[in-house]
């Protein structure tokens, strides 16, 4: 899932300063699940925005709406008949949602209300942690199901660096050394031979280094 957190109110208030009527737009997918931009967060931010603006003596109208998914054009199309009445759309979706809105409604300012953080998993109630960096060339099969790209601070590929101490990463004691985890899991699996196998330098072109990426499924194209 894509995770996000709400931007600081100061930044949000500054970004909506020029507007007097906005559409606050939530998304019922990832940002709902990670408590950043679902119906509930839309309602809370809506109330906070109205309060914050009233406090400054600059009342603002905030309409609240949550789409099923902001990153699909059909759902975004729902806005077409009403969008003109707003000065701006304030999106609580991830960056994908914000851009989908911006593309569909070129003349409408779209403000992000959340910082899109990472692709992560839920560790426990209220805790999300990064699990995937979207590098485009998955190696999890060789690394005991633990990703050295997303979970090693240095993204290195052939065992831990010198900063690994007692299973922790040198950047913080709260961060597990991914290579320690990989080693432990490989031992558990009886696959330690994978660890001794030298990994070739990674081709980062499938990651961001090759420029913006697309997936095209010709079999599906209409």
């Amino acid at each position: 899932m894509i995770t996000a957190t709400r931007k600081p109110m100061e930044e949000i208030l500054k970004s909506v300063e020029p507007f007097s009527k906005i559409l606050l737009l939530g998304c019922n997918e990832c940002v709902t699940v990670c408590h950043a931009g679902g119906r509930k967060e839309v309602a809370l931010l809506g109330a906070a925005l109205r309060l914050g603006r009233l406090q400054k003596g600059l009342p603002m109208e905030v309409e609240e709406l949550t789409l099923e998914r902001q990153c699909d054009p059909e759902y975004v199309e729902e806005l077409s008949r009403t969008i003109d009445q707003y000065d701006a759309v304030c999106s609580m979706a991830c960056g994908c949602g914000v851009q989908t809105i911006a593309e569909r409604y070129p003349s409408m300012p779209v403000m992000p209300m959340v910082n899109t953080a990472f692709m992560g998993a839920s560790e426990s109630h209220g805790v999300w942690a990064e699990r995937c960096a979207g590098c485009g060339d998955c190696v999890l099969g060789y690394t005991g199901g633990i990703c050295p790209v997303a979970r090693c601070s240095k993204r290195i590929f052939n065992g831990p660096c010198g900063g690994s101490t007692k299973g922790k990463c040198e950047i913080s004691n709260d961060v597990d050394c991914a290579w320690q985890l990989i080693w432990d899991r490989l031992k558990e699996l009886g696959q330690t031979e994978l660890y001794s196998k030298l990994m070739e330098p990674k081709d980062w072109r499938t990651a961001r280094d090759g420029g913006p990426r697309r997936i095209v499924r010709e079999d599906m194209a209409l």
């Binding site: 600081p8 109110m9 100061e10 208030l13 809370l44 906070a48 309060l51 914050g52 406090q55 400054k56």
Partner: peptide
């Protein structure tokens, strides 16, 4: 925290 952020 939120209320401090919006000066309420």
């Amino acid at each position: 925290r939120l209320l401090d952020e919006i000066n309420i």
